[in-house]
C-alpha cells in the first residue's frame, strides 16, 4: 500500500475543505477501499475519514421517510430501521458479513457504486434522495453506470433519505465467493407507482427494470411478471454466470420479491 496523508475532520465543512486537496479521497468504513489500496490499485494522496463527524452518523424517521447519515454503518442501519423500513434493514443486514457491517457505511457504498452492491438497489428502488454537502440528488439521477455517480470531485454524501414504501422487499442471490449480489432485485410499491431496481446484473450498473414496473403497476402480483426476464444483451457475463443466466435470475428474483411483499 502507498502511504498517504490522513485527515479526520469533525465537521462537514472541515471535511469539504480537506477534500479539496490534490488526490484527496473520502474514507468511510474502508471495506472496499482498503483492499483496493493493498493491491496498489488505488493511491489516494490524502484520505479524509468521515466517521468522526457526529452529524453524519445516525438514523432519523419523519414524514414517511427515514434519513440515514452518510457515515452510518450497515449494522446500525440494520438495527435502527428494522421497524420503520424492514426491507431496507434486511438489505443492510445481509451486506458482507458482521465485521464488514460494523465498518462499512451507506455513504461509502453509494459513492463507490459497485455494480454488485446492495445499497444502490435499495436507494434506486426506494427512490431515495442522496444529500451531499452541496445539494440533493434524486437516485434516478445519481447512478450513472458501473462505479460512476453524479458526485463531483470532492463532494461528500452527508445523508440519504429513503421514502418508506407501502410494500418493499429485496431479494439477493449471492455470488458464492464475494457474497456480493450475483443478482439483487429491490421492489418497492409506492403511492407514485412500483419501482424495481436491479443490481449485480448489468454492465451499466444498477438500473430500473421499467418493463416489470409497468406490468406491476397494472397488477402487483407474480402473475403479472409471468414469462418476463431481463434483457440478456446488457448483462454481465463472468465465471459465476452467463448474461442469460443473470437475465433469468432478474425475472425469478423480481417475482420472489413481489411474493414476499405479500
Amino acid at each position: 500500500m502507498y502511504n498517504f496523508e490522513f485527515a479526520k475532520p469533525k465537521t462537514v465543512e472541515e471535511a469539504a475543505s480537506a477534500m479539496a486537496a490534490e488526490g484527496a479521497q473520502a474514507l468511510g468504513g474502508g471495506q472496499t477501499l482498503l483492499p483496493t489500496m493493498k493491491q496498489r490499485l488505488a493511491s489516494p494522496e490524502v484520505l479524509v475519514s468521515l466517521t468522526g463527524i457526529d452529524g453524519m452518523v445516525g438514523v432519523s424517521a419523519s414524514g414517511g421517510s427515514v434519513t440515514i447519515g452518510g457515515a452510518t454503518t450497515h449494522a446500525q442501519v440494520a438495527a435502527d430501521v428494522a421497524e420503520s423500513y424492514p426491507a431496507l434493514a434486511a438489505l443492510a443486514a445481509n451486506i458482507g458479513d458482521p465485521a464488514v457491517r460494523n465498518r462499512g457505511t451507506v455513504g461509502g457504498s453509494l459513492a463507490n457504486n459497485d455494480p454488485a452492491a446492495c445499497y444502490p438497489a435499495g436507494a434506486l428502488g426506494s427512490g431515495a434522495t442522496i444529500t451531499t454537502n452541496k445539494r440533493d440528488i434524486a437516485a434516478d439521477d445519481y447512478f450513472q453506470g458501473m462505479f460512476e455517480t453524479a458526485l463531483d470531485e470532492g463532494e461528500i454524501i452527508t445523508s440519504v433519505s429513503f421514502p418508506i414504501p407501502q410494500k418493499a422487499n429485496y431479494q439477493k442471490f449471492d455470488q458464492p465467493a464475494s457474497r456480493f449480489a450475483l443478482v439483487g432485485v429491490f421492489v418497492a410499491k409506492t403511492p407514485d407507482g412500483v419501482r424495481v431496481a436491479v443490481t449485480g446484473a448489468s454492465n451499466e450498473g444498477v438500473y430500473r427494470w421499467t418493463a416489470a414496473e409497468t406490468a406491476l403497476n397494472s397488477d402487483f402480483s407474480q402473475a403479472a411478471l409471468e414469462g418476463m426476464s431481463g434483457d440478456a444483451d446488457d448483462m454481465i457475463s463472468d465465471l459465476h454466470g452467463s448474461g442469460a443466466y443473470r437475465a433469468h435470475l432478474v425475472g425469478v428474483l423480481t417475482r420472489r420479491a413481489v411474493a414476499a411483499c405479500g
Binding site: F6, G30, L34, A99, V100, R103
Partner: peptide
C-alpha cells in the same frame, strides 16, 4: 467485531 486488516 471488525476485521483488523481492513482498518487503519
Amino acid at each position: 467485531a471488525v476485521k483488523a486488516c481492513t482498518m487503519f
